[in-house]
Structures are given as structure tokens and as C-alpha cells.
Write a protein that binds this DNA or RNA. Structure first.
Lengths: 338, 338
DNA sequence: GTCTGGCACTCGCAGTGGTTGAGTGCCAGG
DNA sequence: CCTGGCACTCAACCACTGCGAGTGCCAGAC
């Protein structure tokens, strides 16, 4: 096991490196941090830390930089989450409160996160599967053509065309609409299937086919991954990435365009608390030199979607984690209110 | 006026520079293009072209590169639009045909454009203002709270909350819904205001306030710039920009995040035909080293929105223009069909 | 007039070599 | 176990140089 001081040395290295973006040497360390020991001692500690794989040298006669493993230890054991200051909190709240609809909430969240963390922000749209139905609307567009509109408690609207096997009268539409709503309004998506199971029985034989079609379309909509949309922003922050630009940035931009990749990335994060994936911990190759800080957010107590940021492994973890957590919290509030 | 040969020299310079990304000298020019004259002659022509501001030298003893003015002349007079080949066309069609809804059409278009041109693609969502209303839906969420849902012929759905000045009964909601639809369904957005003007008169005095509120919300939704959304993609192609990376790319990324900027950019393009804005012709500073190739597209004969690409001024104009035009054409078809 | 070959000149670029200094590892002594 | 000292390493920096692509200009040919 590493001694207390060695951990402190590691912490100091991470902090300095994050600040200066330059390999940090033993002398500079003792000067900037009151470790109470001489550079020589620090050198020994560094050698030990390198031995264990927490830090590395870019080349001989250069200082040390943390490895992914080093950052991992730092995040897990050496650093907490830096809470936002009062003014920051108020700014967040103000910024989000002006939103007029769901798209706007997500758009503002992305901007906010990108600005606060000065990194690339990724926000997943609130997922349908964990939220509740606010209203189901059924419109007759043509005798055998309906439009199904689903409105969720997060303000999301999904619409689907339904081609009926047989003509379906206006009264039947109204009837079905009323029955549907009385059963599912306010209910969680996951409960809907059992709630509507016996609905066709209430209708005339000739209409049952259509009712079933509508119901299956509704159920499809509920589980559809389609809702797994996300928005990203702050890509301009990638330019602060490092010196060895194009090679680092290219795969990241590519990964960011693959929504599937990002969704998987966010999906892997645990539901509660801030999740940090560092460098090679990310499955996707293009993101091997980035860290992803993500967290779930939701309108009620539980998470309905994830949001997070993507940045260089050399990032201010406590600050980023704090910002991500705070934003998630306030977005949750906003969603609950609307 | 410039002689025919000098124009050919300019064309050759543009083509070579676009191909090699390196300043092109007189000797290399005569070798690669059968101009039928010696390097010395070309040098004289180059001097003349430089005098007129069509080309420039990065530094003494280097070759020439085209200026914005040079590209402009090239695009206007020296190069046509390169039509897509048969296989390319089929590929475009195949790729777009699989789309399931409007979002998907736009998303696919962006990907396609980015891939074809190897540049950043920007696609504006079909604008509401020129399309027609398919259906208006009104839902009662609470006694004095309505939700207004607008469905367009392009498959777009917009929803708005309406807070009523007074409680509004279910029957009144149904009545308003029916009257609204009978008046505006199938109509063009621009006609809606006059069509609903006298609607409040048909209601009881106590309900008129609410009806007016609903109507004004509807009209707002129709003109809202909010619908002026767009999607961008292919940002990874920015890495092919040039050598002097971070400085060039940063402002571009920033500009791309400002949807307002992009919308204005696209808006400036003329409705018919491919528009090319080169370098400093773009109002936005960050885009001074990029060119924007854009074109209108639409479901009927007329344009309902724009799409285009953003790339370095040093781009393959004929090819890019061809790709942009072809994609616009096919997207229009797809939209008309659905 | 227009084109051409020749020639002197410019200047960025790549390669060389020397110097500097931050940083290291190791060791002997407190 | 810590410390100061010491020799060593090596990237980064700088000045210098030679090379060559490219230019402008001019005198002569067609």
C-alpha cells in the first residue's frame, strides 16, 4: 500500500499537471505544495508511484504526468466533488429557468454545461421509458388513417401514423381516446401494457382490429429507442485540447458524431451519483484520451436520462464533477415543475 | 480584361492548389497542364494576375495561391458544376429512401452531404412558414390550461402550452378544435391569420379571451423562428482543414455552434440555384477563411429550406456544388413523396 | 508584339551542432 | 527514513548554413 505522503504527492502531481499542462518535476512540486520534505524524497516517492503505474515520464529528463490509473486513484480516493458556489448556483438556475419547452431546456443545458466546464457537453433527451403519460391524443386524418400523439410528463411529444385495417368512425375515435386517457394518463410507461390489455374487448368486433393496431403502435412508441436522442455542444472547447492537435481531436469529433457511441457511453454510467470514465476505460477507441463525466438526471426522484461532459483526461475532475452534478440537479427541478 | 490564356492559368492554379494544398509555381504549372507556353510566359501572366488581385504569394520565393477574388472568378466564369455520376446518384437515393420520419430525413441528409463533400454539412429543417397545416389539436390538461399541437404536412409537430384567462369547458375545447381544423387544415401557414381572424366571434363572451389566447399562440407558433432549427454534421472533416490548425478551426467551430449565424448565412443564399460565398464574403468573421456552398430545397417546386456545406476556401467547388445540388434535389423528392 | 531562355536574387526550410537547464537516479551521511 | 550533493540525460532553443524552388527582369528570337 502507498503511504499517506505518496498519495499526497500523487494528488499534487495531478493538480499541478491539470493546472499547467506540463510535466511536473520534483523541485517544482516541493515549491508549490507544502509537503514538508525535500525534492530528493519526493523523487523517491515518484519512483515508487511510477513503479506502481500511477504516473509516467513522457521521456527521460522530463517531469511526470499522471496515467489513467493515476487519475482513477485521484478521483476515487484523493479528491471530492467541488460544490458550486452560491453565485454559480443562482446563475445556473436563472439560465435554465427561461426555457420555454423541452427542446429549449435541453439546448440551454448543453450550453450551460459547456460554458461551466469549458468542455464538450452531452445531454440526452429525457427518456420515455421511465416517465409517465400526460395525455394520449387520437386524430382521424382519413377514414382509415389515424394519428396517434403521445404527450409525456416531460413535455415530449411523439406522433405516429396508424393505418387501420378497417374504417373507424369519429365516435369510435372519441370513445377510444377517452378510454385510453382514463386508463393511462398519469401512469408510468412501464405500466401501460397491462393497463390497456383488455381494451379491445370493450369495442364492437369490427373495430377491434383497429383498436389493437392503435394499441400496439402506442406500445411500440413507448419502448422505441428513437427517443434516445441527444444534443451536444461546446465542441469549440476541443481546441483547448493540447498541442498535438489534429491527431487527438479527430477521433473525438468522429466519436461525438456517432450518437450510438455516445448513448452507449452515457448508458454505461451508473444511475445514481457522478460517474467518471477515464481514458482507456472508455470502450470506444477514439475516446481513449478523453474522460467522460456523466450523471443521471430526472424530474422525480429517479433518473430519466443522462448528461455529461467529454474532455481531456487532464481535466479538473472535482470542478467538472461539481458542475455536472449541479446542472443535473437543476434540470431535474425544471423538468419537475413544467 | 484578362486574356483567355491568363484565365486558363488561373484555372490551373486553382485546380492545382486545391489538389496539392501547396502554393503552385510556374514550372510545376507548365508541367502538369498543357498550356503550350514556357514557364517564363506563365510567370508574366502570374504577375498580371497578382497585379489584379486574383492570386497572391504567401512569401517571396514561394508559389502563388488563389485569393478570394480568384476563387470568385473561378467559380463564376471558369468552372461549371460537376454533375454526379450515375452510381453516386443511386447511392444518394438509396441512402435517403430509408428514412422513417422528418428527423431521420434531415439526419440522413446531413450525413450524406458530409460524406460526399468531406466537409461540414448544414441542413435546415423544412421551414414551417411555407408549408401547410395538416391538423391542429387542442387538449385540455387542466381547467384553465390547454395544450396546442400543430401538425404540418412535412410531418413536423410543434406543441405549446396555453394558459387560459378563464376556465374553458370540454365542449368549448371540442368546438374550438373542430372549427379551427375546418378552417385551417390543408391551408398554407401564410393564409392562417386571415382565416381565423373572426373565430372569437362565434363564441360566448366569456370564452372569447381564451379563444384569442389560443389563436395568438397558434399564430406565434406559425411564425416562430424556433422552427428555424438546423442540424450539422461532419465536423470531423474540419481536421482536414490545414496545417495552421487550432487558429483556423476554433472560430469555425464557434460559428457552427451559433445557430443564428448559420441560419443567417443560409438565409442570405438565393432561393434558386447553388450559392457560393467565399472567404471574406461571409459576414461572420469566424468564417472568413471558409466558403459556404448552399442551395434551397423543397417538397414542391419551391424552396422550403436551405442546406449546404462549410469548408475551406480551398475546396473543390465544382464537385461540392454538384453534390449539394444533387442532394437537395433528392431530399426534395423524398419530402414530396411522404 | 509576344514568347523564350538565361541569369541573378530572394528567402523559407531542413539539417547541423553547440548550449542550456530542468529533471532524474544514486549514494553517502545525518 | 530523509537529505544534500553530484554526475548524467536529453528535449528544447538558438544560430548558422546550404539547398532549391520560385521569382523578376532582360536581351534576343520568331
Amino acid at each position: 500500500m502507498l503511504s499517506e505522503r505518496r498519495l499526497q504527492v500523487l494528488r499534487a502531481i495531478v493538480q499541478d499537471y491539470v493546472g499547467t499542462e506540463e510535466p511536473v518535476g520534483s523541485k517544482a512540486l516541493t515549491e508549490r505544495h507544502a509537503l514538508g520534505v525535500s525534492p530528493a524524497t519526493v523523487r523517491n516517492d515518484m519512483a515508487a508511484l511510477e513503479e506502481e503505474g500511477f504516473i509516467a515520464q513522457p521521456h527521460t529528463s522530463a517531469g511526470r504526468i499522471p496515467t489513467d490509473k493515476g487519475y482513477r486513484l485521484f478521483v476515487d480516493k484523493l479528491a471530492g466533488v467541488k460544490p458550486m458556489t452560491g453565485p454559480e448556483r443562482r446563475a445556473i438556475q436563472n439560465f435554465l429557468e427561461g426555457a420555454v419547452d423541452l427542446d429549449d431546456v435541453v439546448a440551454r443545458t448543453v450550453r450551460l454545461l459547456a460554458q461551466l466546464t469549458r468542455q464538450v457537453a452531452v445531454v440526452q433527451y429525457p427518456s420515455l421509458t421511465r416517465s409517465t403519460v400526460r395525455h394520449v391524443e387520437l386524430l382521424s386524418l382519413a377514414p382509415a388513417r389515424l394519428m396517434l400523439v403521445l404527450i409525456t410528463d416531460t413535455g415530449r411529444v411523439e406522433q405516429r401514423m396508424v393505418d387501420c385495417p378497417a374504417p373507424f368512425g369519429e365516435t369510435a375515435v372519441a370513445d377510444l381516446r377517452a378510454r385510453l386517457n382514463s386508463r393511462v394518463a398519469g401512469r408510468r410507461f412501464t405500466d401501460v401494457p397491462t393497463l390497456v390489455e383488455d381494451l379491445p374487448d370493450a369495442f364492437e368486433a369490427e373495430d377491434r382490429g383497429t383498436v389493437s393496431t392503435v394499441l400496439s403502435t402506442l406500445l411500440e412508441t413507448l419502448v422505441e429507442e428513437n427517443e434516445e436522442r441527444l444534443m451536444i455542444g461546446g465542441t469549440a472547447n476541443l481546441t483547448r485540447f493540447g498541442h498535438d492537435f489534429p491527431l487527438t481531436i479527430r477521433p473525438v469529433l468522429e466519436a461525438l458524431e456517432e450518437q450510438v457511441v455516445l448513448l452507449k457511453l452515457l448508458g454505461e454510467a451508473k444511475d445514481a451519483g457522478v460517474t467518471v470514465r477515464i481514458g482507456h476505460e472508455n470502450a470506444h477507441e477514439g475516446l481513449n484520451s478523453t474522460s467522460v463525466v456523466s450523471v443521471g438526471y430526472g424530474s422525480g426522484g429517479e433518473a430519466v436520462a443522462k448528461l455529461g461532459v467529454v474532455g481531456p483526461t487532464r481535466m479538473d475532475y472535482p470542478g467538472t464533477m461539481g458542475a455536472v452534478r449541479a446542472v443535473a440537479r437543476y434540470v431535474g427541478q425544471i423538468l419537475a415543475e413544467s
